[in-house]
Amino acid sequence: LVRYRTISKIPQITLNFVDLKGDPFLASPTSDREIIAPKIKERTHNVTEKVTQVLSLGADVLPEYKLQAPRIHRWTILHYSPFKAVWDWLILLLVIYTAVFTPYSAAFLLKETEEGPPATECGYACQPLAVVDLIVDIMFIVDILINFRTTYVNANEEVVSHPGRIAVHYFKGWFLIDMVAAIPFDLLIFGSGSEELIGLLKTARLLRLVRVARKLDRYSEYGAAVLFLLMCTFALIAHWLACIWYAIGNMEQPHMDSRIGWLHNLGDQIGKPYNSSGLGGPSIKDKYVTALYFTFSSLTSVGFGNVSPNTNSEKIFSICVMLIGSLMYASIFGNVSAIIQRLYSGTARYHTQMLRVREFIRFHQIPNPLRQRLEEYFQHAWSYTNGIDMNAVLKGFPECLQADICLHLNRSLLQHCKPFRGATKGCLRALAMKFKTTHAPPGDTLVHAGDLLTALYFISRGSIEILRGDVVVAILGKNDIFGEPLNLYARPGKSNGDVRALTYCDLHKIHR
């Protein structure tokens, strides 16, 4: 019993810090008490220290592992850092350059016999395009090294910054494609005289377009951006097909006994025919423009016929181009109408809503002055909100995010209106959640004399007048207030005048 009563005193000691020596009952000389009392004092002292730490809000209350900052290894790049964003855009520009100039170089340097010394005699450094290609190869190699040090988000939505895990993730992902696209074939085969082989191998750079397509997928929600990307894709495919079309004609031209190829026909049409040795002929500019003209006309199913396939190889390629053109029509131009419709969806919704308003007016036989006010209010409210119901949009977000959005939407009023000066951010967040926005066209009466005042109004834009009878008592403008002081009276009061809008007004109100 003594032991039980001794232990039962522990909660009292913990909360009230009572010393055991003052209790005459606990001072009985028993061996059990002498053993338990020192333990009680020690526990009391420890609990006292913990309570003191909690009340003082000291940093040592938290466990040590929670006080440590997340460790980022040296030379690790955050995937959302500004440097990584700028670097990704730079790589994107280099990939676009590669997609345009690599097929052009591979096709127009394929057994090209233009006048001038061969590239091997001039030297590697004197070729501007080769120098640019070398810079692109170096940048792609540097990009691989950067990807080995860039964080990523795993399946659990955690940012991984450990170098080993980053390397394994990159090896399992895009490393092989990036490595093949970054191989400097110019340096590996330079001086061997195989410019045709170098041009063909350099087309491996186009593998990076797969990554670019995935990154550009984030802009699919913007109709104008999608339309622009589709047109660029169409032009890029036409450019690639033009390079292939020229390569076919250029390879067949020296081996044909009869002059029936499209390059021969082009030379005869523009007065620059090929001679018996295969030299001469149109310039590279004429060849490229004509090839691009043929691919565009074939892809769009126009086909004027002034550039036509004559050999079997050219006919087979033309059939493939027609098939590609039909697929592009289905996948690209078939979506253009939907994209344009999405661009004008706001206008369509406006006309639909206006039609419903006019049908309501016609069905209920609203008189002319009231009908005009109804239409003007709808037009003004639509121009202010673009038909978007803010309350319906915010309803799907958590309250903390709703408060931040409301604070942002009402920031101008909260910053410049005098009653809100000096208020804490928590108070402003709470008030912003209570605001209701209303609009009024010129001549609209917001409050009639004798109406119950259940709200306090803040003028965000425009001006109003307060009338008693036919006498203008006051004219209020931006950041002015009218209405009933909230919670100042037990019952809502009545208006002693009319409140009429002089201009288009936007008002925020808080109800009782």
Rank of each mutant, 00 (worst) to 15 (best):
G305E: 01
W382L: 04
I366P: 01
T311Q: 01
W382A: 04
G278H: 03
G280P: 01
P103E: 01
G191V: 03
P309R: 06
A247L: 05
L134R: 07
K84L: 03
T352F: 11
F101Q: 07
I339P: 01
F101A: 11
K84H: 01
W174M: 10
A204L: 11
L109W: 03
C427P: 05
R165C: 11
G278Y: 01
F101E: 09
Y97G: 01
T203E: 01
Q68R: 11
A432K: 01
Q341K: 07
T347M: 08
K84M: 01
G199R: 15
F435T: 06
V131H: 01
D178L: 01
P419W: 04
A182P: 01
N386S: 05
W75M: 12
Y344I: 01
Y124N: 04
L413F: 04
A130T: 05
I144N: 01
S298T: 14
L279Q: 15
F294H: 01
T424K: 09
P398N: 07
R373L: 03
W240S: 01
H73P: 14
F175C: 04
K84T: 01
P367H: 08
K111S: 03
A381N: 13
V336G: 03
H416V: 06
F140G: 01
V131E: 01
Y384D: 11
N368M: 08
D143F: 01
V159G: 01
T424E: 07
E314Q: 03
G280W: 01
D186H: 14
S297K: 01
V132L: 09
H73F: 07
G346D: 10
C243I: 01
S308C: 04
C400F: 03
L394H: 03
I270N: 01
S326K: 04
L93I: 12
S345T: 15
I183H: 01
G422D: 15
F420E: 01
V160Y: 01
D444H: 04
V95D: 01
T76R: 01
L201E: 01
V136H: 01
G223K: 04
G443D: 01
V212N: 06
C122V: 01
P367N: 06
L431W: 03
Q372V: 15
V393T: 05
G346S: 10
Y329E: 15
K287H: 01
G164N: 14
I183N: 01
I248T: 01
V447M: 12
S192Y: 07
G271N: 03
Q415N: 08
F228Y: 01
H416G: 11
C417V: 11
S194I: 10
S276H: 09
F108C: 01
L94H: 03
P419R: 03
S326F: 04
A225F: 05
Y293I: 01
S192D: 09
A238I: 04
V212I: 04
I135P: 01
H169T: 05
P103R: 01
Q353P: 01
L94Y: 01
F234R: 01
K287C: 05
Q365I: 01
V95S: 01
G116F: 14
L78R: 09
P273E: 01
P254L: 05
W174E: 01
I361M: 08
R71D: 07
F397D: 01
F397Y: 06
S220E: 05
L209W: 01
V210E: 08
G346M: 05
F333P: 05
T113F: 03
T311F: 01
N154E: 13
H239R: 01
K418A: 13
C417R: 06
Y104A: 01
W87Y: 02
I91C: 04
L92D: 01
I244E: 01
K111G: 14
K436E: 14
G261T: 03
A213S: 04
P441F: 09
M433Y: 03
A182T: 05
T311A: 01
C406P: 01
V131A: 06
Q341I: 04
A69W: 12
G303C: 03
E157Y: 04
L279K: 15
L201A: 05
Y104M: 01
G191Q: 06
P419Y: 15
S326P: 12
L431F: 07
L227P: 03
G267S: 01
Y97K: 01
F397V: 08
D217R: 10
S105L: 01
L413E: 01
V210K: 13
A119S: 13
P254M: 14
H380E: 07
G249C: 01
I340A: 12
D286E: 06
N275P: 01
F140L: 01
A235I: 11
A204R: 14
Y293T: 01
G396F: 03
L94W: 04
L188W: 06
I138R: 01
D186N: 12
I144F: 01
E196G: 15
Y97A: 01
G223Q: 06
G346A: 11
I96K: 01
L414D: 01
Y350V: 03
H79G: 01
K202C: 01
Y329G: 04
K215M: 04
D133T: 07
G303K: 01
D286Q: 01
A69R: 14
T352M: 11
R205Y: 04
I189F: 14
I189C: 11
V180T: 13
F234M: 13
I77E: 01
N335L: 04
K84Q: 04
A155M: 12
F360G: 03
L176V: 12
I77G: 01
K434V: 05
K287W: 01
A348V: 13
V168A: 09
G191S: 09
L229H: 03
L374C: 10
V210R: 14
G305S: 12
F333S: 03
P163A: 13
H448F: 06
A423V: 08
I237W: 01
S277I: 04
L188F: 13
D88F: 01
G422S: 10
K434G: 03
G267A: 14
F304V: 04
L343V: 07
S337C: 04
M139Y: 03
G305R: 02
E375Y: 04
I244T: 01
A238Q: 01
I361V: 12
S313I: 14
H408K: 01
K66L: 12
S283W: 01
F228L: 04
A432C: 12
K272A: 01
W262F: 01
N265C: 03
R349M: 05
G443I: 01
Q415S: 10
R371S: 10
T76H: 03
I189G: 13
V447Q: 01
S313C: 13
L187P: 09
S345A: 09
F140Q: 01
H264R: 06
P369G: 08
P442E: 05
G396E: 13
E196W: 04
I144H: 01
F228T: 12
F378V: 11
I284E: 04
I237L: 13
V142S: 01
I141R: 01
S161M: 08
L134Q: 03
V289N: 01
C406Q: 10
A348R: 11
I166N: 01
S297R: 01
S313M: 14
G303N: 01
C417I: 07
C122A: 01
A125R: 14
D186M: 11
H380D: 15
L327W: 04
F397R: 02
I77D: 01
T203Y: 01
Q253G: 08
M251G: 01
T102P: 01
L188Y: 08
R358Q: 07
K111N: 04
F304H: 04
A338Q: 06
A242P: 01
D88S: 01
P128C: 15
G261Y: 01
P82H: 07
G396S: 15
P367D: 10
Y219Q: 08
I237G: 01
K287F: 08
F234L: 13
N335P: 13
M231P: 01
E196A: 14
Q365S: 09
S297V: 01
R349W: 09
T311S: 01
E314I: 01
S276A: 14
P117K: 10
G116R: 15
F360D: 01
I260W: 01
V447K: 01
K285G: 04
W75I: 05
L188E: 07
